[in-house]
C-alpha cells in the first residue's frame, strides 16, 4: 500500500537521484556545453555509484527497521548481530592474503564472512528462538570478529596492506563499478524481500514474546528470516562498501512517527529513507571541498553519533 510518507520518499528519490548524478568533482550541467568525457563519468562512475548507494541504503534501512521490531528496542542496529563485523573480517582477510586485488574476491570473502557469522549465530542461538539469546550470541560474534580483525591488522604483512585495510573499513562508495552493483543488488533485494516477510510476526512481538506466540508466531521461523534477511542485506552492503554504520539505527527511528507504530509498516518507508540518506550523504561526501574525499562511513557516523546522543537523552528524560 502506498502511504503518504512512501509517496513523498519516492518523490524525493526521483528528484535526488538525477541530481546526484550531476554532482561531484566535475559538475555536469545538462544545459551548458558538454563536459569532456561526460558520458563516461555518468555511466561508468556516477550511475553505478548512485545505484549502489540506493540499494545498500535501502537494505540497511530495512534491516534496521526489522531489527528494531525483532528486539522491540528503538536502539537496535543491524550491526548487533555480528554479521557486519563478520563480513568485514572476511574482507580484511582478503586484503591480508593479498587476494583483494583480484576482481570479485574481496566481496566474495566478505560474503563468506557474513555467511559464517550467520551460521555461527544460528548454531549458538539454537532452536529456542529467544531474542535475548540471539542478541547475546550476536554480540559475542561481533566482539570475537572485532578482535580477529584487530589481530589481522596488527599482523599485516606490509604497511600497505594495513593502510588498505584501515581505509577500506571506513566504508565508502568511491571507485565502485557495475561489478559491485551486480554482486550487491540481487543479494540486497533478496534480503529486503525476506525481511518483508517478517512483518506480521514483528507486529505480534509488539505484545511480548509469549503473547506473540499465542498469536501464532513461530519464533524459529522468524529467527531464520531475521538471520537470512539481515545477513543478505548487511553482508552485501559490507562486501560492496565496507562498514556503513548508523543508517539502520537513524532511519527507522525517523520514519516511525510517520507510521501507525506497527513494525511491519516501518520496513518499506525505512528502505526508501535509507536509500535517500545514503544517496544524499554520498553525494555530499563527493562535493565537499576536501583534499581527499570524506569517507561515507565516517560522514554517517559523524552525523549518527549526535543523533544517537539526542535519542539517549530523550529516553533518559522519559525514564525520569
Amino acid at each position: 500500500m502506498i502511504t503518504r510518507p512512501v509517496a513523498l520518499l519516492l518523490l524525493g528519490l526521483a528528484i535526488a537521484f538525477p541530481l546526484t548524478l550531476l554532482a561531484g568533482r566535475v559538475w555536469i550541467d545538462p544545459f551548458a556545453s558538454p563536459v569532456p568525457n561526460a558520458l563516461v563519468i555518468l555511466t561508468e562512475l556516477r550511475l553505478p555509484r548512485s545505484v549502489l548507494a540506493l540499494v545498500l541504503g535501502a537494505g540497511l534501512g530495512a534491516a534496521g527497521a526489522a531489527m528494531q521490531g525483532y528486539l522491540r528496542n528503538p536502539l537496535a542496529d543491524p550491526g548487533l548481530f555480528g554479521i557486519a563485523p563478520g563480513a568485514a573480517l572476511g574482507a580484511v582477510l582478503s586484503f591480508w592474503t593479498g587476494l583483494a586485488g583480484t576482481a570479485w574476491l574481496l566481496p566474495l570473502f566478505a560474503l563468506l564472512g557474513a555467511g559464517t557469522a550467520m551460521a555461527l549465530l544460528s548454531l549458538i542461538a539454537g532452536r529456542s528462538g529467544s531474542a535475548l539469546l540471539f542478541t547475546l550470541a550476536g554480540m559475542m560474534i561481533a566482539s570475537l570478529t572485532g578482535a580477529m580483525m584487530s589481530l589481522a591488522i596488527s599482523l599485516s604483512p606490509t604497511p600497505f596492506a594495513m593502510s588498505e585495510i584501515v581505509t577500506w573499513l571506513m566504508g565508502a562508495l568511491s571507485d565502485r563499478s557495475w561489478n559491485d552493483v551486480v554482486i550487491a543488488a540481487p543479494l540486497t533485494l533478496a534480503g529486503i524481500a525476506v525481511l518483508l516477510r517478517t512483518g506480521p510476526a514483528l507486529d505480534a512481538l509488539t505484545l511480548g514474546e509469549q503473547a506473540a506466540r499465542s498469536l501464532g508466531l513461530d519464533p524459529r521461523r522468524l529467527q531464520w528470516l531475521m538471520i537470512g534477511g539481515t545477513g543478505l542485506t548487511v553482508g552485501a552492503s559490507v562486501a560492496a562498501a565496507g562498514i556503513i554504520g548508523f543508517v539502520g539505527l537513524i532511519v527507522p527511528h525517523l520514519m516511525r512517527r510517520f507510521t501507525d507504530g506497527r513494525p511491519s509498516q516501518l520496513i518499506v518507508p525505512s528502505a526508501l529513507a535509507g536509500a535517500l540518506l545514503v544517496l544524499v550523504a554520498d553525494s555530499v561526501c563527493r562535493v565537499l571541498p576536501l583534499q581527499s574525499e570524506l569517507r561515507l562511513g565516517i560522514a554517517l557516523s559523524l552525523l549518527g553519533a549526535p543523533f544517537f546522543l539526542a535519542l539517549l537523552l530523550r529516553l533518559r528524560r522519559e525514564l525520569v
Binding site: R72, P200, D203, A204, L205, T206, L207, G208, Q210, A211, S214, L215, G216, R256, D260, G261, R262, P263
Partner: peptide
Amino acid sequence: PQSPEVAWDVSVETLVALGRL
C-alpha cells in the same frame, strides 16, 4: 499474558487489531 507489555506506541485501535493476526 500477565505483563501488560506493548513495545511500540500504537493506538488503541491498532493494538486491538493485533488480535486479528
